[in-house]
Design a protein around this nucleic acid. Sequence first.
DNA 1: ATGCATGCAAACTCTTTGCAAACGC
DNA 2: GCGTTTGCAAAGAGTTTGCATGCAT
Lengths: 152, 152
Amino acid sequence: MGTEKPHPKSVEALLGTLRAHGFRVTPQRVAICAVLAGMQIHPTAYDVYDAVRRERSDISLATVYTALKALTRAGAILDLHTAANNSTHYELDTRPHVNFFCTRTGRVDNIAAASVGALKQAIELDGRTVSDMRILVYGTTDDADRQSPHDS
Amino acid sequence: MGTEKPHPKSVEALLGTLRAHGFRVTPQRVAICAVLAGMQIHPTAYDVYDAVRRERSDISLATVYTALKALTRAGAILDLHTAANNSTHYELDTRPHVNFFCTRTGRVDNIAAASVGALKQAIELDGRTVSDMRILVYGTTDDADRQSPHDS
DNA sequence: ATGCATGCAAACTCTTTGCAAACGC
DNA sequence: GCGTTTGCAAAGAGTTTGCATGCAT
């Protein structure tokens, strides 16, 4: 039933995963992982760049992209494409769960639904092996103010 | 349990949905919808452009984008972002289901899993309204030849 | 007749790449 | 020391937009 989630990954865990996969740990990557570990939502590459830039004004956006790709390849994070935005959002929680996009507030929530496991099992019973699931659900949360259905 | 699906939408249905939402039906859009209705897989905008160009060599890629956006806004198709590709793929089957991306063959299959409905219900019980679900699953089908896990 | 749709090209956004210098292992 | 990583800038891919013309309603 819970909606909010605490930071699922620590700086050390992120860096450790990088190292374990043969990627190098640079001061830039330490700063990037620190920012990632402190982020509550699903940041884009530019979000990360913008946050890291406050400490290290010399950081390059290309470096952020490289680091995020390394983290993705190491399995420490997931890249998340949405239909609402052209840019990739990154996900720190690598366990199967539901990403809920509220079309009214623009928020992205993580939902831990029990049915996700059942879904995975059903697919694997059908002669497949699942390595990764991305469940994107669009809709609204019922408690906020109403807004008339979009027209244009 | 079924994996393959026949064309879920006819040209007439696509054009009718456009018309019902106040969009105009032009010869270009007829050609675009005809191509969409005949497609087995999930085409990109360029795939559609390339197919339509065979009949109408004067078609513009921008026109294809405009038409696909109109179809999406009318609810006739869905735009589908994958984590594997930068480009948007379009989905003709607007009912909730699972898109399975085989990481070995690059194929995209539609799976009608019963658990999808259960998942939607679980989310809605939690105080939300679901307008759209995209379930992207990555993995392999067990029947094909093996391939060693990717490294680089 | 009104105003949406078209075609073309240019602009725009996000991401990747080439290269020389710097640095982690 | 070797080979990855960095920063910069330029290139690349995908998509959108401005504008004059054309066409569906």
